[in-house]
Every structure is written in C-alpha cells, then in structure tokens.
Simulated assay, not measured.
Amino acid sequence: MVVIDSAQTKAAKEAERVKAARGNESYGALVWRRLRRSLTGMIGLVLVTLLILMALFADFWAPMDPKATDSGFSPPQMISFYEKDGSFSFRPRVYALTDSAELDPVTFQPITGPDYDNPRYLGFFVKGAPYQLWGMVPLDRHFFGTIDGSPVHLLGTDKFGRDVLSRAIYGSRISLMIALSVVFITTLVGTTVGMVSGYFGGALDAWVQRFVELVLAFPQLPLYLALTSLIPVTAPTNVFLTFVIGVMAALGWAQMSREVRGKTLALARIDYVRAAMAIGASDRRIIFQHIFPNVMSHVIVAVTLAIPSVVLLESFLGFLGFAVKPPLISWGLMLQDTANYSVIGTYPWILSPVGFVLATVFAFNALGDGLRDAVDPY
C-alpha cells in the first residue's frame, strides 16, 4: 500500500511539474508541440527545409556546371562498387558509356556499354566547376562529384548534353522563387483586402466583393497565356520574370481575400473587438492588433497549401514556354524536352524534373496538413 501511494505521489508531482512547465508556453511553442506529434507534418517540414537548402546552395549541391555540354541524351550513369573483374570495392565509381564495334540489328546504331577500363571515382566535397556562391563568394567545391573532375551524369543529359541533375537543382531556385514571391504578394494583398472588407462591411464590402467575384470569374489559364504572350521576346530576363510573377499574383489574391473576409466577419462580432471599439480604438489598430493575429493561423495554412499550386502552374506554363525563358532554368522549362512522345519513349530520364515537382508538392501539402491540425485551438 505504501509503495502504491509513493508511486501515485511521484506521478502526481511529475504531472504538476509538466503542467507548470507547459503553462508558460507561448502560442508558437504550443503549435510546435502539436506539430511534432504529426508524422506527416514533420516529414513535410524536413522535406521543405531540404528544398530550401537545395535552392539556397544550388551551386554547391550540383555536381556539374548546368551549362556545360557533353554527349546529347546520354543515359544515367549508375553508381557501382564493383571492379572490372567483379570483385567488390568500397570506392564508389561510375562508368562512362563507350561505343562498341557491334551494331544494333534493328536500329543499326553502335551498341554502347560501360567503359570498365576507365572508372570515374566519386567523392564528397570534391573540386569541380568554379562558381560564386550567391554571386559574392568564389568557390570550386561541390558536395559530390568525380575526384578527377570528369563529367558525371546520375540522371543523364538532355539533348544538348547538359547534366539533368545539376539543371534540376539549379531549377529549384527559379521555381521556388516564383512560388514564394507569388504567394507572398497574394497573401499580403488578399489578407489586407479581406480584413478591410469584412471589418467595415456595408457598401465598401459589397463593392469589393463584386470586384473579387469578377476576378474569380475569369478563366485563369487562357488569361495567363494571353497576358504572358504580351511580353516581347527580346525583353530582358528580369523584366519577363517580374511580369510573370505579377500576372500570377494579380489573378491569385482573390481567393485568399474571400477566405480572410469570412474569418473577419466572425471575429468582428467577438466581445474583445467590440470592447476595443467602445473604448475608442482606431480601426487600423483593431484590424492589425486584434483581428490580424486571429486570422494568421488560417493564413499560414493557406500559404503552405498555395505554394504547391503555384509550383504546378509554373511547371505547366514553363512546359508551354510562357513562364521562364533561357538562360534561366526552371523545372517547367526543362520539361519542354518531353513534348514529343517519341523522345519520352527513347529517353525517359528527361522526365526527372517531374520527380522534383512531385516532391515539392508533397512536402508543402504535408506541412500544410500538419500545420492545419497544429494551429487549430479546438
């Protein structure tokens, strides 16, 4: 009996200690504690972090210069741990393809095979093509590559002989930059318009919502194509990219505005907002000090779910040639090589950017699902 009472006393003291420790937690700490319990949310958070790091340090992660050319449409090189005689070795290497004297009986093309006499050994933090990190720090170290600096193509090459893996890593910069810029603008404009419209109501709300409905009524895809086609082909790259971001943002803020307006209509009737009105608080203070913090949870989740949509839209427009122009690199632009079915059947590795798009969409959707449960106070 004494042992049981002692165990119960220890358990009660531990519960009180945990309760006291958690009693001082901020809202952010509570959200983080709930998010850690979500396996899907944590997987999404890890993947999003890796994607951002890949975009920030693309020069370091990419094994080759994305503009360097080699043999066109070269298949992916497999990493091997075996010597020419079949014995196992701990030194990873790749074998370049070489043409043999035999011809394919169907296509009459030389049959290619691995060049076992000239292995290319792989390593980490090797010297490679020089670059300037963020345009400021000159470096020549890459995360992985061949020790002797010879070409390595783990995902093959495109029709110009450029490394697909390196171009996909570099393409994450433009694709994610477009997505984050568009979502930032749509969130800023949509949240502000939604809160102002829902708070003031009346004639202002009616006119604003009619304009929002007009924007939502436009068929977006034909309008995207029409607006982006207005840009001259000779326009500078930064002008073209800015115009594309502006077009996407101009057609994407209305949905966020409608959602935030609905939240604001409910919050404007809560007691603490009416109390702030009664004591003479300004409308600006009420909107940004009382209403805005309470719609932030919904906005954060909406942002994480909107980024995948913009990534998919950019990939689709880039595939059609309306999003990014060379010399910039994006996942959508890389997919232009897949427009021909015969090319896909013969060189399937050029579909590799699709994997990056799928990973990005899954990562942000998983993070959004985890945040949706974590920020919900109920």
Rank of each mutant, 00 (worst) to 15 (best):
M1K: 07
I4K: 11
S6G: 11
A7Q: 13
A11C: 05
A12S: 13
A15W: 00
A20R: 14
S26D: 12
G28F: 15
V31R: 00
R36G: 12
T40I: 12
G41K: 01
M42I: 13
I43C: 06
V46E: 00
L50C: 10
I52R: 04
F57I: 04
F57N: 02
D59E: 15
W61M: 12
A62N: 04
M64P: 00
D65V: 02
D65C: 03
G72P: 14
P75I: 04
F81Y: 15
E83V: 00
E83P: 00
F88V: 12
R91Y: 03
T98I: 15
E102C: 04
D104R: 10
D104G: 12
V106T: 14
L122C: 10
V126K: 09
L133V: 10
M136H: 10
G149T: 06
S150V: 04
S150Y: 04
H153S: 08
L154E: 07
L154F: 11
L155C: 04
L155Q: 00
T157S: 13
K159R: 13
L165C: 03
I169H: 08
I169A: 04
Y170A: 09
S175I: 00
I178W: 02
I185A: 14
I185D: 02
T192R: 06
T192S: 15
G194S: 05
G198S: 09
G198K: 10
G201Y: 05
D205W: 12
D205M: 08
D205T: 10
A206V: 07
W207T: 15
E213W: 01
L216F: 11
L216I: 12
F218H: 07
P219D: 13
P219C: 08
Q220T: 14
L225W: 09
S229I: 07
L230M: 15
I231K: 09
V233S: 13
T237Q: 14
L241G: 02
I245D: 06
I245F: 03
M248E: 11
L251N: 09
Q255Y: 09
R258L: 08
V260H: 02
R261M: 05
R261W: 04
R261Q: 11
G262E: 05
A266P: 00
L267C: 06
L267I: 15
R269K: 14
D271P: 03
R274I: 08
A275M: 11
I279H: 06
R284S: 13
H290K: 09
H290N: 12
P293L: 05
V295W: 06
V295D: 03
M296I: 15
V299L: 11
V299Y: 03
A302E: 08
T304R: 01
V310Q: 02
L312S: 05
S315D: 04
S315G: 15
S315I: 03
F316D: 00
F316M: 15
L317Y: 07
G321I: 07
V324E: 03
V324P: 02
P327L: 07
P327N: 10
L333M: 07
L333Q: 14
M334Q: 11
N340P: 00
V343C: 01
V343G: 01
V343P: 05
I344G: 02
P348L: 12
I350Q: 06
A359F: 13
A359T: 14
F362D: 00
A363K: 05
F364V: 09
L367S: 01
L367A: 01
D369N: 12
R372K: 14
D373M: 07
V375P: 10
